[in-house]
Structure formats: structure tokens, C-alpha cells
Amino acid sequence: MSADASTVALKASARAAVATNRRRGGGIRRQIALQVLCVLIGITVVFPVLWIVAMALDPRNLQKPDSLFPPGASLDAFARVIAKPTVNPVSFLTLATNSLFIALVISISSVAIGVLAAYAFSRMRFRGREFLMIAILAVLMLPAVATIAPLFVSLNKIQIGTFNLRNSLIGVSIAIISSQLPFAVWNIKGYLDTIPKELEEAAVVDGAGRVQTFVRIILPLSTPVLAVTALFAFIAGWTEFILSWIFLTKPETFTLAMALNGMVGQYASATPWSNFAAFSILFAVPPIVAYAVLQRYIVGGLTVGGVKG
């Protein structure tokens, strides 16, 4: 009871001290308290990353790590996963090339096709506009898994000689575009809506047509959203697992995400964790670099919240 009362008194005096500090314009003690809080949050944010780096540098090639702080460091794990990442006879380079192929096809096609549609939705009044926008919005909320069965059986029917569209990188890319394109259209449209119409009207007065205004005014002004949409599509393709794992069965078409799946789960015991860690780092570097480069665009370019007709 008395202990309780004294804690209450202590808390009250602490609060009063904080209040006086604040009135003085923020004392050094308050600054330290805030910084300690920031450090604690920072530790939780950074810890999984540091742990994976420590594992990747562990020189002992253990099946599983036995300490958070490995003795010494070596790049052997990186060399091992680059030479032969999985039990399949494919190199890291092949896996990376396949992932890159999917990522590039998706980001280029969804942005190129998406910006044209987004411009029409954002700037033109035409018959069927509302209906088409609702149709795209309805598709947008569906997860990629939702159309996996019909896409699988439909693409599987397209067989030319020994080439099966379903079991190919281009087939997987097509299937992924199915869910990336609606996002691209909607995200770019949201941004175009924020560009003042007066800029184009001025150009129209100067005698420019729709296509000219689009190329000369809209495209340059929408660079941030195009970059961010391309970035998201690129990362979606680079890390795609869901469709690739079902569609692709030939080892030479396997992707990085599929190989990563072989390093966890039921097969995890066959892979030293340092290999898994090194592989994850190599896999994550391109998206992280892309994010870092485009960071200043990201908040402005992500317009998912702006859902208005």
C-alpha cells in the first residue's frame, strides 16, 4: 500500500520534472530518454538483418548455428551458393537470370500498358468509363492465388511441339501480369489525378493533340509514379514464388524464390544455415538497392489510398 503510494508520488514528480523540462525547451535528460527509446526500436528493426549477416559470414559451415556471434568471418558461404545453390544442377546465375527475366517483363509491360490506360481513366470522359474502372478495382483486390487454377489449366492447353506455355518463364510472366497490371493502372491513375489539368489545357490551346500532350506533358510529370510502379512490379517479379512454384517444373527455368523454398521447410536440414543466409542476402540485395535509389519517390508515388473516381 505504502509502496504503491510512493510509486504514484514518484511518477507524479517525474511527470512534473518532464513538464518543467519541456517548458525549458527540452532538457538533455529528455533527449537521452528519447534517444534510448530510438536505439531500442532500432535494435528490434536491425536484429534479424544482423543475425542473417552473422550467419552468412560464419566460417564453420555448420548445419545450424550454435551462437549469435560466430568466431571470425569468411565469404565461403557466398562462394558455395553462387557455385551450386541447390541440389539441382543449376547455378546461381541461371536462377538469377530467370528471376530477372520475369521481373523485367512484368515491370516493363505493366508500366507501359498501365500508363496508357491510366491516362484515359484520369483525363477522358467516355462511355463505359465507370464500368471499366469498377471492373479493374474489383480485380485489384483479388490475390494472385485467386485465378491460379484457371490460369494454370488455360496456359497448359497451349502446347507447340515440346514447348508448353504454362511450363515456361514467359507463361509465368503472363500469369503474373494478370495481377500486376490492374495495380499499375490504378496506382498510376491515382497519381495522374493529382497533376493539374490546367497544364494540359494550356498545351491544347497551343494546338497540341491528346497524344502530344500525353508524351510531352504527362509522361515527364509522372516519372515518380512510373518509377515506383516499375519498382513494385520488378520486386514482385524478382521474388515471385506462388505461381512459379506451381507452373515451372524444369530445373533450368527455376527462379531464386523457388531455390530459397528448397532451403527451408522440410528440406531445411539438408542446407547449412550459412548457405541459406548468404543466398538470402544475395537475393535481397537488388530490391534493397532499388528501394534505396528510389526512396524519395516512394511516398509520393504510392497512391493506393487515393481511391476516388
Binding site: 477522358m124 467516355f126 484457371p150
Partner: peptide
């Protein structure tokens, strides 16, 4: 003009999004 701009997206989505649905 609007449908010219929309044509690529509508074609692609008709085949790989709406038809599968």
C-alpha cells in the same frame, strides 16, 4: 481516343484476367 489508349490494357486483361475469372 480513350479506347485507343485503353486498347492494350483491355486486350491483355480480357485474355489473362477477365477470361480466367
Amino acid at each position: 481516343t480513350a479506347y485507343l489508349f485503353l486498347l492494350p490494357a483491355l486486350l491483355v486483361m480480357a485474355v489473362i484476367t477477365f477470361y480466367p475469372l
